[in-house]
């Protein structure tokens, strides 16, 4: 029998006992990045499929949220840095092996594109907001006059409006990269066993797309569009549940550190918040509500949409917090 009695020693007051260097900023950004990726993905996807005029909210209106989400996310990332005045160092180099460098450059491309896409739809937006959500109308018309007052900008937007099909292909690719990146950022850390799994990229992408679909569904006024996005959401949530099962199967069939990190969710300190908050409230409950809706029961669309958004946010907080607890044992 071999029993380990004491491991003591490292007790550096300002570093130990737990590694917790990423706080609320990172999970908030991961959520907003995924949400923006979802909005841009559906906008460009349905545009490419030629359904831009039919699914107005998703293609023309909802993408206008994306630049704001990305800006808030970027501000959160900036707040997270400890050496903030040096943030520009991200853009004086490109490190091919560093996921964070890829992310910084991806965001650098996504941000202008997320502005350009909704700006090409200003005319449609003005028409839309003159009937719905009228409080937005003065803002949209102000943006319109602002763009028109700067000639080169107006020309640029006109050019993009003419070449919207090409723009849509660029946006769809970059939005998938953005969505996957939110997961890859974590999965690239070998030293944090909970994150170190390749399923995290697809899982975060699916979760990001489902939050995007939920927001579109919530803000849409058209019954047809709501039903389409409700179905998309059901599919995505089902895929996400499958990925989560897959995640734990992978951990439990792996090495000691992975098994230990899975235990955090299977009886450990994150069990309740994960299975009730993320899986129960964020996935299963909206799945049931949306299925009921499709079978004719009336459920206000805002409830499943809000649950999916909250679930997505909690999911990222749980993953970032729990991952930092897991470590190599020696």
């Amino acid at each position: 029998m071999k029993e380990e009695l004491i491991i003591s020693g490292r007790n550096i007051p300002n570093i130990d006992p737990v590694l917790h260097i990423w706080h609320w900023q990172i999970p908030l950004y991961l959520f907003l990045g995924g949400l923006a990726a979802g909005l841009l993905f559906f906008a460009s996807y349905f545009y490419i499929r030629g359904r831009g005029n039919e699914l107005k909210t998703s293609v023309q209106i909802a993408p206008a949220f994306a630049p704001f989400f990305i800006i808030i996310g970027l501000l959160a990332l900036l707040l997270d840095l400890k050496h903030q005045l040096y943030f520009w160092r991200l853009y004086t180099t490109f490190r091919i092996e560093s996921p964070m460098s890829w992310g910084a450059w991806t965001l650098g491309v996504v941000l202008p594109l997320s502005f350009i896409w909704p700006l090409t739809y200003l005319k449609e937006m003005k028409k839309y907001f003159s009937k719905n959500f009228t409080f937005m109308y003065p803002i949209v018309s102000w943006v319109d006059t602002f763009i028109k007052s700067i000639k080169p900008l107006e020309k640029l937007i006109k050019w993009f409006t003419k070449h919207r099909y090409g723009l849509a292909w660029v946006v769809i690719v970059i939005s998938v990269i953005l969505g996957v990146y939110t997961g890859i950022l974590l999965s690239a850390f070998n030293a944090r066993p909970l994150w170190n799994t390749s399923i995290l990229g697809p899982l975060f992408l699916t979760s990001g797309l489902s939050t995007g679909a939920a927001l579109i569904m919530w803000s849409s006024k058209s019954v047809k569009e709501r039903i389409i996005f409700s179905r998309i959401d059901i599919l995505l949530v089902a895929v996400e549940l499958f990925f989560i099962v897959h995640l734990f199967m992978g951990f439990l069939a792996s090495g000691a550190v992975q098994i230990e990190s899975a235990q955090l969710f299977l009886g450990g300190e994150f069990t309740a918040i994960f299975w009730i908050g993320v899986v129960g409230i964020g996935l299963v409950l909206p799945l049931i509500l949306e299925t009921m809706e499709l079978f004719g029961f009336h459920v206000p669309i805002s409830i499943p949409a809000l649950l999916i958004l909250i679930g997505g946010l909690i999911f990222r907080f749980v993953m970032v917090d729990a991952g930092q607890v897991t470590r190599y044992l020696y």
């Binding site: 840095l81 400890k82 903030q84």
Partner: peptide, 24 residues
């Protein structure tokens, strides 16, 4: 050149790195 993002701290299995109070 360090922006204090903390990625290397997360990446180290030995927890040998830390944030200096000056940010790097």
């Amino acid at each position: 050149e360090c922006i204090g993002c903390g990625a290397c701290i997360q990446a180290c299995p030995y927890e040998a790195r830390y944030f200096h109070p000056d940010g790097y």
